[in-house]
């Protein structure tokens, strides 16, 4: 396992294996996200036009709220038995820890979005107008955009006593541009893109993801320093 990529894949594999063995995080995420979507649909009432119009927003809010559980948990497992120290002492490059963790969080969020899609279709009566590959691609880039800053802030918040409150407080304001772009893009896939706006929103979302993956990669060693 030499090289940054090899170390990143090691961290990713470790996280996925822990997740697979317990399945605690994935199960909790799925039920929490479905419950959130159900609550949104009940809150809107039987107005199907309104439900269709706002389906993308509710889908991504459900994913965003669920990601708070997922991101916090990804660092809680490292604080048990000083596992993070074990990684540092192998020694694993801190940037590889960032990449591995972020890839793991992205994958989990992406899978969750795929699970939530049929639920959204059933609850909000939406149709996928622009095709499934486009939607799956948006889910992937959206998951990447949430995961990169989410991993950095989850690492920072993991040292705080009120970490469960601190993480959303730090992360939500940062994510506003990404949330706006991904909701608009998803809405266009549901409702159709008559004005050819999808590319612009995807460009914004892609730029956001690239910027935060780069920043996280560069700054994560400093975050670990403050352990």
């Amino acid at each position: 396992m030499s090289g940054l990529l090899g170390q990143s894949l090691l961290v990713l594999r470790k996280d996925l294996l822990i997740e697979w063995r317990t399945r605690a995080r994935l199960n909790a995420l799925i039920f929490f996200a479905i419950a959130t979507l159900l609550l949104f649909s009940f809150a809107l009432g039987p107005d199907t036009v309104m439900m269709r119009k706002h389906a993308a927003g509710y889908l991504w809010l459900g994913l965003l709220f669920s990601s708070m559980l997922s991101l916090g948990e990804s660092f809680r497992i490292e604080s048990e038995n000083l596992a993070m120290d074990g990684l540092k002492l192998i020694p694993v490059d801190p940037r590889a820890i960032f990449l591995g963790k972020t890839m793991g969080n992205t994958l989990l969020l992406w899978l969750l979005s795929l699970v939530l899609l049929p639920v959204t279709i059933a609850l909000f009566d939406v149709t996928v107008t622009l095709g499934w590959p486009t939607l799956v691609g948006i889910f992937l880039v959206g998951s990447m955009a949430i995961s990169a800053p989410g991993t950095v802030y989850a690492a920072i918040a993991s040292h705080a006593r009120a970490r469960d409150v601190l993480l959303p407080l730090l992360l939500f304001p940062i994510l506003i541009p990404a949330l706006l772009a991904v909701v608009k893009a998803t809405h266009l896939v549901f409702e159709g893109d008559l004005m050819d706006q999808l590319k612009s929103w995807m460009r914004l979302l892609g730029c956001f993801a690239i910027i935060y993956w780069t920043l996280g990669f560069l700054l994560f060693p400093k975050v670990l320093e403050d352990d």
Partner: peptide, 14 residues
């Protein structure tokens, strides 16, 4: 800093 400590942890593993 954290990245430079990697070299120390290679020279003197704990």
């Amino acid at each position: 800093p954290e990245r430079a400590l990697q070299r120390t942890r290679e020279q003197v593993p704990y």
